[in-house]
Every structure is written in C-alpha cells, then in structure tokens.
C-alpha cells in the first residue's frame, strides 16, 4: 500500500485532497448549483418550486426596485471596506512594528470581541445607538449637550458602523501579515535615496502591501455585501440591504426561485468584484 503510494505521488495527492473535496462538493457546490438552478424555475404555492423553466425571476431581480437595493448594498459594503482600510492600515502598521510580546498582545486584543456571539454584540450596539432609549442619546441629552436625539439608529450610518465593527479584524489581519513581511531595509533604502516619509509610503510601503490590501478588502466587502443581521437590527427595519430582501424571499414570501435569482446575481457581482480587484493588484504589484 505504502509502496504503491510512493510510486504514484498523484494518487497520494488525490487521497489527501479527497476529504476536503468531497465535503465541498456535497455542502458547497451542490447547494450552489441548486440555487442557480432554482433561479430558472417557477415558484410553488407554499414554498418549494415547480419544475418548469422561466426567465421571469431574473428579469424581476434586475427591476429597478430590487436593483437599487443591490446598488445601495454595494455602496454600503464599499464604504465599509474603505473605512475598515482607513482605520485598519495604521492599526496593522502599529502592530507590525511592535516587539514580539506586544505584537501578540495586540493581536489577541483584536480578536477578543470574537469570543462572544455576533448577534449578541450587534444587540449591544442596538442598546447604545437606539434613538430615544439608546445609551449615547440618553447620556448626551441628560448632560444637556443636545436637545433632540442624534440620528444614530435605523439608517445607513448605524449599519456601516455595525459592519465596520464586525469586519475590522478581517481587514487588519491580512494587512498585518503583509506589513510584517516588509523588509525594513527597503524603507531605509528609499529614505537614503532622498524620499521623505510620505513618498517612502506611496512608492514602497503601499505597493508592496497591496496584496494584503486586496485580501483584506475582499474579506470585508463580500460579507458586508451579503450582510443581513446587521441591517436587520441596526437598520431598524427601515434601512435594508439585499441580504434582507433575499432572507425575506425565502422565509417570509416563500418565493424560493426569486430569492435564488437574487442570490445568483449577488454571487455574480461578488465574483466580478473579486476578479477586478485581483487584476488591479497584479498590475500594480
């Protein structure tokens, strides 16, 4: 048996990859295929599908009513990504330039929020942000600093805040990895060659960490685009994202084919965004 494996490294590789591959085929590729297939079927009366081909769902999904929700979600996810990058880059730089011990401590601190459930943490934000009973508005009004409650809740601001909070570590970790791999003598060389700090950053640090920027951005953008817990709780039922619409199609409207159509379009958009980003990075890097 072992001899056979030694003689046939291809077989060995196949055996090693088998568990992961079979798991993904059953639990990822099949459902994905089902979702795409459902997009072309008609809805059943009480959920489920009727096996007859139609393009109606996809046509409905690009109707302005829903397409605007797509655009709005993409804008929110894009803003979330940019804000995560603006906050995360300096933070990752700070962590990467510390001594080993402080580095580990800071990375741990970054992960601590993940120890509690995402839903619970989002509820915590709810108690802080709520318009009339939220801690922030109550405090500020109690102190007499404001007369009217600030619009902290039930809008895009609240959603973006929640998403940034939730996905910031996913931005910081790849950036940290990229920055800690950076050879410090390259920065010294740039400085030696008359580049002031600003240009050391734009010409050397930034281009060499672009792969980290791309990885972090994708890791933040994709879950933000499909988010539904955060907009459901912090959007206050008024401000919705495409994730909520899809959620409703499956659980409330029992229109599985239409929910599938929306999902298929979203998967397509994510694929395009990811490809575009990698293209950009490869050209610059």
């Amino acid at each position: 048996m072992i001899e056979t494996l030694r003689r046939r490294p291809g077989l060995q590789a196949a055996l090693l990859i088998f568990p992961a591959a079979s798991f993904l085929v059953v639990f990822f590729l099949m459902p994905l295929f089902i979702v795409v297939a459902y997009s072309f079927l008609e809805r059943g009366k009480y959920g489920g599908v009727v096996w007859s081909f139609t393009l109606e769902n996809l046509q409905r999904a690009v109707d302005p009513l829903y397409f605007n929700t797509f655009l709005r979600s993409a804008r929110i996810a894009g803003l979330t990504t940019v804000i995560c990058l603006l906050i995360g880059y300096p933070l990752a730089y700070l962590i990467a330039t510390q001594s080993d011990r402080r580095r580990n401590f800071l990375l741990l601190a970054l992960m601590i929020p993940f120890w509690s459930n995402f839903l619970v943490r989002t509820y915590a934000w709810l108690t802080l942000l709520r318009t009339n009973t939220g801690l922030i508005n109550v405090t500020l009004m109690g102190l007499g600093l404001i007369r009217e409650p600030l619009p902290l809740f039930g809008n895009d601001f609240a959603i973006i805040l929640g998403l940034v909070y939730g996905w910031l570590p996913d931005m910081v970790l790849p950036l940290y990895a990229a920055l800690s791999r950076l050879d410090p003598s390259l920065l010294e060389a740039a400085s030696d060659l008359y580049a002031p700090g600003r240009r050391v950053f734009t010409r050397v640090v930034w281009p060499l960490t672009l792969p980290g920027v791309a990885a972090g951005s994708i890791l933040v953008f994709i879950p933000s685009l499909g988010a539904f817990i955060t907009p459901a709780l912090l959007g206050g039922g008024k401000s919705l994202m495409i994730g909520n619409v899809i959620n409703n199609q499956f659980l409330a409207a029992h229109d599985w084919p239409f929910g599938s159509a929306l999902s298929t379009i979203m998967i397509g958009l994510m694929l395009l965004a990811t490809l575009a980003y990698f293209r950009l990075v490869r050209r610059r890097g």
Binding site: E188, A189, A190, A195, P196
Partner: peptide, 20 residues
C-alpha cells in the same frame, strides 16, 4: 538630519533593491 537630507548614499548588505 534624516537620511534623505544627507549627501551620502548607501549600498546595503542585502542590497535592498525594490522588488516591485
């Protein structure tokens, strides 16, 4: 004075060529 204001240049041990 920082390095970029000094009239000297350096050849680094590892060369420190910009890989990109």
């Amino acid at each position: 004075r920082p390095p970029y204001q000094r009239p000297v240049n350096t050849v680094f041990q590892s060369y420190a060529l910009f890989p990109h």
